[in-house]
Design a protein around this nucleic acid. Sequence first.
DNA 1: AATAGTTGATATTTATAAATATCAACTTTA
DNA 2: TAAAGTTGATATTTATAAATATCAACTATT
Lengths: 154, 154
Amino acid sequence: MRSEIIQNQDTPLYSISTAAKMLGISVHTVRMYERAGLILPFQKESSHRLYSQSDIERLNCIRRAINEDKIGIAGIQRIHALIPCWEIVSCSQKDREQCEAYRNHTKACWTFDHPKNTCKTRECRTCPVYKESIDCTKIKNRIIGITEKYESTI
Amino acid sequence: MRSEIIQNQDTPLYSISTAAKMLGISVHTVRMYERAGLILPFQKESSHRLYSQSDIERLNCIRRAINEDKIGIAGIQRIHALIPCWEIVSCSQKDREQCEAYRNHTKACWTFDHPKNTCKTRECRTCPVYKESIDCTKIKNRIIGITEKYESTI
DNA sequence: AATAGTTGATATTTATAAATATCAACTTTA
DNA sequence: TAAAGTTGATATTTATAAATATCAACTATT
């Protein structure tokens, strides 16, 4: 049986220049989004970034939000800060109290170091909080979902 | 006993030109915010608008969000759409199903006509959903508050 | 060892959102 | 019934976010 490398949507494949080419934008723009905390590219041992198919889609979403929907980078950051991450990752009350991201309302949780709580063992790139945050519909649906979840228990 | 008019933060007092002067902006800018659904001025029988002290503060908040925080008008609209209004006004499951605002993720609930649900009897100007939406901190705290509320019941 | 590509930084350009100016028609109130 | 203010609309200006260009130093690949 020959060994096979499993590849999926999340496999980091493309270099930054390839990714930029696929999106029709400059390399620098991609890095701008990264600095703003909108995307977390894969970093192998080396310092070079790699992008997966999911990353390309995510970048496309960011692009639409900025250019079509006219939500700016700062707007996206604020929206990200509203995602109820503590619910998504089932963060304990105690963890929340120590979590910077929980209280913050200016940027996404994955832009913080959070060594103290349940997230310390998670890789943000694969975390559902990060992965679900690509558009406003999903974010609102998540907020709706939480209230529905609780209501069904009552 | 002479009759007295009760005045508070919410009493509509100022004309649009007075409001604009208080804020140091043009009349048209104030109307721009209104058209975008960021503010709901009081409309007496006449067609002229009136603004309360709360309205002035709200406009100041909008101003800060746009000019300092660099969240654009479109960004504010999207953030408003994320407020869990259904929880705040205790909207029934049935009402939600019929509510456009519930599903929408581009603008605030108070920018919709909602003649079918519990909100039909409410005046949006005085509704806590509208009044609490002036800044991101309050909105995030509201989302937090909902999850906490439910957790305490379990 | 040479080539192609990446990094991070600064400086510049471009696109456009936000704000203003101007208008005629209409309202209010003094 | 005048004067002052408001409305709604369009055209224009201004401020700046988003994107690009350019750079030298570094990294990976052949």
